[in-house]
């Protein structure tokens, strides 16, 4: 340490790759490659450090390596109502990539809606982890120094880009219907996450799921509000996953 008083110079931060993180990066990259191949758009969000979202987007749209294809990646502008903007623009098959702390509630609410919107979610962050299942891919660093973490985020999304482009060479593995998971939600009649669009007067509601809009029965749960997340099974809401009103979105 030549300059111990000048953090964060030197040190062993992230010196050696974490095997689990590398596996997570690999899985996320294959998922992104599949979504891009099927025509999906990547939405990039990082409300507290907007430059990260811009960096991810420019990386995919205009790669630094000549000859690499331009991919649709978009930044949700800083200052926009994150959840409302994504709700209006995300299409089934899209991706949402966040660089944010576990405590950023707008990001957490957006990630949680991924399954209802049909979006694959990737959450990059450091420090205290979000709850299990908070996103499809949680790429997390055990690093406290915010500047070192920020440097390693750049490394992580560069690797995501590089690995995604490697996956494009393996066309046999890019079919969107490829299922490698032990349990595939879309292939079975498991509960599906839905976001309530509007509520009818007779214990029914119009909801949005990855498969589109549908009317469901809501008599088994407390009366829902627009914006709530519910679990749908066989045409009925069987649980409330998140109680949020659209009014709260517009705060």
């Amino acid at each position: 340490m030549t300059r111990p008083d000048h953090a964060p110079v030197g040190g062993d931060f992230g010196a050696s790759a974490d095997a689990g993180l590398c596996e997570d990066l690999a899985r996320a990259s294959l998922a992104l490659a599949r979504r891009f191949s099927a025509g999906g758009t990547m939405w990039c969000i990082s409300p507290s450090s907007p430059f990260h979202a811009h960096h991810v987007a420019v990386e995919f749209v205009h790669p630094v390596i000549m000859g690499k294809r331009a991919l649709p990646a978009v930044v949700v502008p800083a200052g926009a109502d994150l959840v409302a903007t994504l709700r209006a623009t995300v299409r089934p098959g899209d991706m949402v990539v966040a660089i944010a702390g576990a405590g950023e509630s707008d990001v957490s609410r957006a990630m949680r809606r991924g399954p209802a919107w049909g979006a694959e979610t990737v959450w990059i962050g450091a420090g205290p982890r979000p709850a299990d299942g908070a996103a499809d891919h949680v790429l997390w660093l055990d690093v406290d120094d915010p500047l070192v973490a920020s440097e390693l985020f750049v490394r992580m999304y560069h690797l995501l880009w590089e690995l995604t482009h490697v996956c494009f060479e393996h066309t046999g593995l890019l079919r969107p219907d490829t299922c490698d998971e032990e349990v595939c939600i879309t292939c079975s009649d498991e509960g599906r996450t839905a976001e309530v669009i509007s509520v009818g007067g007779l214990g029914d509601a119009l909801v949005r799921t990855a498969e589109g809009r549908e009317h469901i029965d809501t008599t088994l749960i407390d009366p829902p509000c627009p914006g709530d997340l519910v679990l749908v099974h066989a045409g009925a809401a069987i649980a409330t996953l998140e109680k949020t009103s659209l009014e709260e979105d517009r705060r």
């Binding site: 992230g14 050696s16 690999a26 490697v166 490698d180």
Partner: peptide
Amino acid sequence: GDEDDAPSLLADLATSAGAKWDQSS
């Protein structure tokens, strides 16, 4: 090339990511 075996591709990708990570460090 073109193997269509996802677990083996994922293992190769993870190895590559680790090598790049260390190089960057």
